[in-house]
């Protein structure tokens, strides 16, 4: 039987047996050679900088001094003993946990709502794209202005509604600083999650939902036992991408609070950025980056394992 796969295989065999397509070095064949440009790019963009960062993390490199010394794991020990680094790890994970859960819950609700609005669905989807088109730096400035205690619209609205002139320190007080950052993060994150979930919901064959309805399932049961399992892979994709986004959160926090005041809203990358860029403590910042990168890789692996499980369950 002729299939596309068998045709491709015959074509490859023909290519390999042709003298012009056989590599000059034994074992180096054309398909392998094709990988070199991409592998080279990955090496240049990822592997070399990572290796260099690991090297720097083992030195006392500081921009103030032109000489550096190998100090082994000294920077790692310093980072593990640094209470601000520990706080920024906790802050980042707490923010990611809250933000991702809220984005998923609100995104699911919005996606369900929008997919049921057949006539206005496209308009809603277009509207959801707007926050995604705004660079995070500008979003940071936007929300910094919105939450400004003296000239911001939130306090102005509260003054108008309550008649009180008490200034609420949105970007200074605990936990208001975090709430302000969370709102900004949700403003960017929810539309993305919603769009991915809408795509997932639209991929579900209507027959499944109709069959469940015939079997007497109510709206919640159809969502819980049909829709939710079938969009599982989409949920994990959305969460994987968003967790990486929140994990590397920098611009919005840098603009809105700078990680402060008094490290109150410090996240991993605002702290690492501060150490590297403004203090010039490159070795120390590199050590923290290596540890954070290792954590990120572990977290990503966890998410992708779950993604593959969800895909297997769907299949």
């Amino acid at each position: 039987m002729f299939t596309r796969r068998s045709a491709n295989r015959r074509h490859l065999v023909a290519e390999r047996s042709s003298p012009s397509f056989v590599g000059k070095r034994p074992g180096l064949q054309r398909p392998t050679a094709f990988i070199f440009p991409a592998a080279g790019a990955v090496l240049a963009i990822v592997a070399f900088p990572t290796a260099y960062a690991v090297f720097l993390s083992l030195t006392d490199n500081n921009l103030i001094s032109p000489v550096q010394h190998f100090i082994g794991l000294g920077q790692y020990r310093a980072a593990l003993a640094d209470p601000i680094f520990a706080r920024s790890v906790i802050n980042t994970f707490a923010l990611a946990t809250i933000a991702l859960n809220l984005e998923l819950l609100i995104g699911l609700g919005l996606a369900q709502l929008i997919t049921s609005r057949v006539r206005t669905r496209s308009a809603w989807q277009a509207l959801l794209m707007v926050p995604l088109m705004v660079p995070p730096v500008l979003a940071g400035y936007q929300f910094k202005w919105i939450f400004n205690p003296d000239v911001g619209v939130v306090n102005d609205a509260l003054y108008s509604l309550t008649g009180s002139v008490h200034s609420i320190n949105w970007l200074v007080d605990v936990p208001l600083g975090w709430i302000s950052i969370l709102v900004a993060e949700l403003w960017i994150g929810i539309p993305f999650v919603t769009i991915v979930l809408i795509a997932g919901m639209l991929s579900i064959s209507p027959e499944y939902l109709q069959a469940a309805e015939v079997d007497g399932a109510n709206g919640w049961q159809r969502f819980r036992y049909v829709t939710l399992p079938l969009i599982g892979p989409f949920i994990w994709i959305a969460m994987a991408l968003r967790s990486l986004d929140v994990g590397r959160l920098y611009d919005i926090v840098r603009i809105m609070t700078g990680g402060g005041p008094a490290h109150r809203t410090e996240t991993l990358w605002t702290y690492i950025g501060q150490e590297a860029t403004f203090d010039g403590a490159i070795g120390y910042a590199a050590a923290m980056s290596v540890m954070v990168s290792a954590l990120s890789v572990a977290f990503s692996l966890l998410i992708f394992v779950n993604l593959f499980r969800a895909r297997a369950a769907k299949a």
């Binding site: 400004n148 205690p149 003296d150 000239v151 200034s167 320190n169 970007l171 200074v172 609070t257 700078g258 402060g260 005041p261 008094a262």
Partner: peptide, 21 residues
């Protein structure tokens, strides 16, 4: 001094002054 002082940059304090605040 403003309640937002701990999060205030030069630009923001200039804006307060130029707005008569």
């Amino acid at each position: 001094i403003p309640s937002a002082t701990a999060n205030m940059s030069f630009g923001e304090q200039d804006t307060l002054f130029t707005n008569g605040k």
